[in-house]
């Protein structure tokens, strides 16, 4: 055991870093569990309205998103400024929604289908016309659980 002895240098002992990998792994697992990788890059401008009576969406895996808003600035020369629907990663039209819902359903277990929620992320400047159309389309597909995505905030009149 004598070869573990240091040769009499009496400086302060170094910090023991043996547990560093463990700590790092712990953090790593935490972030791996909490991560949901952002799957869609936004192609529409989204400033959701504020509301007070909001609820948190429980199961993220059961939520599919429909974005509606005017195209972002980079896309405006090509697509104008009229509000558009975005499904997944691309602009879509109303007639694409049934297929989108169908795909969402196929990706889930049959038991989970009644709990599937569609979250509508809509810019607050959008007119109700296009929103109503989307809602009608969802009704036709019998996807009735929806969520109007809003931020927590004060009421507009306060």
């Amino acid at each position: 055991m004598s070869h573990f002895h240091k040769k009499g240098t009496k400086g302060s002992p170094g910090i023991n870093t043996a547990s560093l990998p463990d700590i790092v792994f712990m953090l790593l697992f935490f972030f791996m569990v909490t991560t949901t990788v952002r799957d869609a890059s936004l192609k529409v401008r989204l400033i959701t309205p504020q509301a007070t009576e909001i609820q948190k969406l429980e199961k993220k895996s059961l939520v599919s998103y429909i974005y509606i808003g005017p195209p972002i600035r980079a896309m405006q020369p090509k697509f104008g400024t009229e509000p558009r629907i975005q499904l997944n990663d691309a602009y879509a039209s109303l007639s694409d929604i049934p297929l989108f819902i169908e795909m969402e359903r196929k990706a889930h277990d049959e038991k989970e289908i009644p709990y599937l929620t569609t979250s509508l992320k809509i810019d607050k400047e959008v007119k109700m016309g296009i929103v109503t159309d989307v809602k009608q389309e969802l009704r036709k597909m019998n996807a009735l659980k929806i969520n109007y995505s809003t931020k927590k905030g004060g009421r507009a009149d306060e």
């Binding site: 909490t34 991560t35 509301a51 909001i54 609820q55 009735l144 659980k145 969520n147 109007y148 995505s149």
Partner: peptide, 20 residues
């Protein structure tokens, strides 16, 4: 994973549409 994490959970007004 730190970079890829989005911690914000979606929230909003949950409603149910009437069936057709």
């Amino acid at each position: 994973f730190i970079v890829a994490t989005t911690m914000d959970t979606d929230s909003g007004l949950l409603t149910k549409l009437p069936p057709m």
